[in-house]
Design a protein around this nucleic acid. Structure first.
Lengths: 158, 158
DNA sequence: CCCAACTCTACCGCACACGTCAGGGGCATC
DNA sequence: GATGCCCCTGACGTGTGCGGTAGAGTTGGG
């Protein structure tokens, strides 16, 4: 089969789409993109305009969406003529994504808070003359401040 | 070999440490804990006091530290008699962890921001009478607001 | 001695988005 | 038809912290 007009082999397509072969094949595996055609030898041929599709996937990935979710959206887009329904699906996905991101952030913020507590305590200990021993119950509570050690630090002293 | 005083088999130890066999064996694999001894048949026997060690690992995990990092800290703790050096290592690890958490949070916040932008635009489109077509360059820029579409949404309309 | 309950090692599986081969062909040009 | 570049499929590897299973061995009490 000879070259087709306006169709690109995967290597050239990848360059234009600013990605690489493996990624394109992976997207195809997940049902995110399809080459416009294949040669008899199995070579993939892509339409130039499908570069936008790749870009869309990339853009949605930047929102933190998983490829599965992105595929669902693309599928709705393909199936549905009703623009409102499609927009609604996008809205739903975005709202859910925002919730998901909030949750992740909350977890990380919680960890940061604990780290800060531990750090605070570690600083105090640095300037403290006491050392943990059986006599002072391993600095629990702290001989200087009388405070309890943070959970995540107390074990350090035992 | 008969039961040793004050030593626990892995099952009992796991219960007291509020964890499970698999986790304990995994920690051992990573060099985080060692049973005090083994029976001739290969059974692990743990000291009760090592429950604190497990708890420490758990506590540090809650700060978001990886097990490898935790092992490093525990190793310093074992090797070093100098308490100040140990505390310094802990401080370093905590500071680094805080930085790491900040970075992760920044990424997620960035994603949230983009999601919000896309959502905002999607809401506008919902109440808009225009539809993307070749006539209006696929709503780029928006016929109503004159704004450019967010990157991560423009491709949706093509 | 026997049996139930416990434990052992070794291994595969998961999530996720690819990276990186190996071994084999296809394509276009001279 | 030969050459050199491009492409194919299939498969394993990565990171992380375990979960779960198989098949075999150990322990301790009756």
């Amino acid at each position: 089969m000879t070259a087709q007009p306006d169709l690109l082999k995967i290597g050239d397509f990848a360059k234009l789409a600013n990605t690489n072969l493996r990624t394109l094949r992976y997207y195809e595996e997940l049902g995110l993109i399809q080459p416009a055609s294949r040669s008899q030898g199995g070579f993939r041929y892509y339409r130039q305009t499908d570069i936008h599709r790749v870009q869309m996937i990339r853009d949605l990935q930047e929102l933190g969406l998983h490829l599965d979710r992105i595929r669902e959206l693309m599928a709705v887009r393909a199936d549905v003529e009703n623009r409102d329904l499609f927009l609604e699906r996008v809205r739903e996905a975005l709202v859910e994504q925002d919730r998901l991101l909030q949750e992740k952030i909350a977890v990380l913020e919680g960890q940061r808070k604990k780290v800060a507590q531990a750090l605070h305590k570690a600083n105090e200990c640095r300037h403290c003359s006491h050392s943990p021993s059986t006599d002072n119950n391993y600095c629990e509570p702290c001989c200087t401040t009388g405070e309890r050690l943070p959970d995540h630090l107390s074990a350090l002293f035992q």
